[in-house]
């Protein structure tokens, strides 16, 4: 039974859950393989989760109410697959984490640790 919590309770968000939320950020429902592919694309091959890690992470995000399972879209042939979509809470957590990371990056920039790439 998902219980609602303030988004801040979930911060900092671990690496993989953050990517999962990012992959679903556009609101489209996706199944596991599509999430894997999208993370792979977004990070340009830098991160490609294994099925084992991904489903464990998605299971936990679902348990906490950050993701929800939805019916497959009508055009999908294989109706047995589970599709996942970001919940409102998930959206808020993603937003909060992005801000937190953004703020950290700003700090790093200000300390001249991070220079724009050549």
């Amino acid at each position: 039974m998902p219980v609602s919590h303030p988004a801040a309770d979930f911060l900092p968000l671990p690496h993989l859950p953050f990517h999962v939320l990012l992959a679903l950020a556009d609101g489209e429902p996706r199944h596991g393989w599509a999430v894997i592919k999208r993370i792979d694309e977004m990070t340009e091959g830098g991160t490609c989760p294994s099925t084992g890690s991904l489903y464990l992470a998605m299971g936990r995000l679902e348990d906490r109410g950050l993701l929800e399972r939805v019916d497959p879209p009508a055009e999908e042939q294989d109706t047995r697959r589970k599709f996942y979509r970001l919940t409102a809470l998930g959206g808020r957590v993603l937003d909060a984490e992005s801000r937190r990371l953004g703020a950290l990056v700003d700090v790093a920039r200000a300390s001249r640790l991070l220079r724009p790439e050549r």
């Binding site: 596991g32 393989w33 894997i36 099925t51 991904l54 489903y55 464990l56 998605m58 299971g59 697959r81």
Partner: peptide, 21 residues
């Protein structure tokens, strides 16, 4: 190797994705 409860809910999807992968 996965815990029974977790496996039951996701194993089919995982197999499917593994085949695709």
């Amino acid at each position: 190797l996965l815990p029974e409860e977790h496996r039951r809910t996701v194993a089919d999807d995982m197999r499917h994705d593994f085949d695709r992968a």
